[in-house]
Computed example of a mutant assay.
Amino acid sequence: MAQKKVVVLDYGSGNVRSAVRALEAAGAEVELTADPEKVMSADGLVVPGVGAYASVMQQLTKLGALRWIGRRIAGGQPVLGICVGHQIFFEQGVEHGVKTAGMGEWPGSVERLQADVIPHMGWNTVRPPQNSKLFAGIEDERFYFVHSYGVQKWEFDVTQPAMTPPQVTWSTHGTPFVAAVENGALSAVQFHPEKSGDAGKRLLANWLETL
């Protein structure tokens, strides 16, 4: 089987080389680029993200990448978000009282976790739904998290009977929060698969199998 071609979106986010290496280890042909043609033609697009929600949205907007990401999703072309690259697909992020609009693919507000220890840093278990493709074979594994904000309420209104609701994976740090979402061509994880050892490699390989 031919290698899947994956683009890791290069928009100024830090620590993306580890994501490139992890995807290569999982079996993909990977390029780190912000070339619109390559972004649109790749078998899969990975949107990484570290730092502040508002800063990531600003960088993506300045580059024009939100339009590319939106076009891929609308066309059924696979996209995977990681960490803040997961959070941007929700309606908004709230940091220090400042609200920043997200892409609005899913309902929910990214807000500070209600926990005694912040940030949530280290290994944690997740609770994936049955028939999850991302977590197939790794349902009981731990994954590596580094974040202070997350989506703690999920209210998805299926207005069309034919619409399949997204599959939501949960984790808990102080309070339950959304650890991953699988929604057709769009998937996203709050943790870092590239820092999650064999479990993270398997998750990325599972995603590549869906491309």
Score class of each variant (00 low, 15 high):
residue 1 M to G: 14
residue 1 M to V: 07
residue 1 M to F: 09
residue 5 K to I: 02
residue 5 K to D: 15
residue 6 V to I: 07
residue 7 V to P: 14
residue 7 V to R: 02
residue 14 G to H: 06
residue 16 V to N: 03
residue 17 R to G: 10
residue 17 R to S: 12
residue 19 A to G: 01
residue 21 R to Q: 11
residue 24 E to L: 01
residue 26 A to M: 02
residue 26 A to S: 04
residue 29 E to V: 00
residue 29 E to L: 07
residue 29 E to Q: 12
residue 30 V to L: 02
residue 30 V to S: 07
residue 31 E to L: 08
residue 32 L to T: 08
residue 32 L to M: 14
residue 33 T to G: 04
residue 35 D to L: 06
residue 37 E to M: 04
residue 38 K to E: 09
residue 39 V to I: 15
residue 46 V to D: 04
residue 47 V to S: 08
residue 49 G to Y: 02
residue 50 V to H: 12
residue 50 V to S: 07
residue 52 A to V: 05
residue 53 Y to K: 02
residue 57 M to F: 05
residue 59 Q to G: 13
residue 61 T to I: 00
residue 61 T to V: 01
residue 63 L to T: 12
residue 65 A to F: 03
residue 68 W to S: 15
residue 69 I to V: 15
residue 72 R to E: 03
residue 79 V to M: 02
residue 79 V to P: 08
residue 79 V to L: 02
residue 80 L to S: 09
residue 80 L to D: 09
residue 81 G to D: 07
residue 81 G to H: 00
residue 82 I to R: 11
residue 83 C to H: 05
residue 83 C to L: 05
residue 84 V to S: 13
residue 87 Q to C: 08
residue 88 I to Q: 10
residue 89 F to V: 14
residue 93 G to C: 03
residue 93 G to Q: 03
residue 95 E to R: 01
residue 95 E to V: 11
residue 95 E to D: 10
residue 97 G to D: 09
residue 97 G to Y: 13
residue 97 G to K: 04
residue 98 V to T: 14
residue 99 K to Y: 12
residue 102 G to Y: 04
residue 104 G to E: 10
residue 106 W to K: 12
residue 109 S to I: 06
residue 110 V to R: 12
residue 112 R to E: 13
residue 112 R to H: 09
residue 113 L to E: 13
residue 115 A to Y: 12
residue 117 V to I: 15
residue 118 I to P: 09
residue 120 H to G: 11
residue 121 M to E: 06
residue 122 G to C: 09
residue 122 G to W: 08
residue 122 G to Y: 08
residue 131 N to W: 04
residue 133 K to H: 14
residue 136 A to W: 00
residue 138 I to D: 11
residue 139 E to S: 12
residue 140 D to C: 02
residue 140 D to L: 12
residue 141 E to Y: 05
residue 145 F to M: 06
residue 150 G to R: 05
residue 150 G to I: 00
residue 151 V to K: 03
residue 153 K to L: 06
residue 153 K to H: 13
residue 155 E to P: 02
residue 156 F to V: 06
residue 157 D to Q: 11
residue 163 M to Y: 06
residue 163 M to W: 04
residue 167 Q to G: 13
residue 168 V to T: 13
residue 169 T to R: 11
residue 169 T to H: 11
residue 172 T to M: 07
residue 174 G to R: 10
residue 174 G to C: 10
residue 177 F to M: 15
residue 177 F to T: 09
residue 177 F to E: 11
residue 178 V to N: 06
residue 179 A to D: 11
residue 183 N to R: 00
residue 184 G to R: 00
residue 184 G to M: 03
residue 185 A to V: 01
residue 185 A to I: 00
residue 186 L to F: 01
residue 187 S to Q: 14
residue 188 A to V: 02
residue 189 V to E: 12
residue 190 Q to C: 07
residue 199 A to P: 05
residue 199 A to C: 10
residue 199 A to F: 04
residue 200 G to W: 01
residue 201 K to G: 15
residue 203 L to E: 03
residue 203 L to F: 00
residue 206 N to R: 03
residue 207 W to H: 10
residue 208 L to P: 12
residue 208 L to I: 09
residue 210 T to H: 02
residue 210 T to L: 07
residue 211 L to W: 01
residue 211 L to M: 14
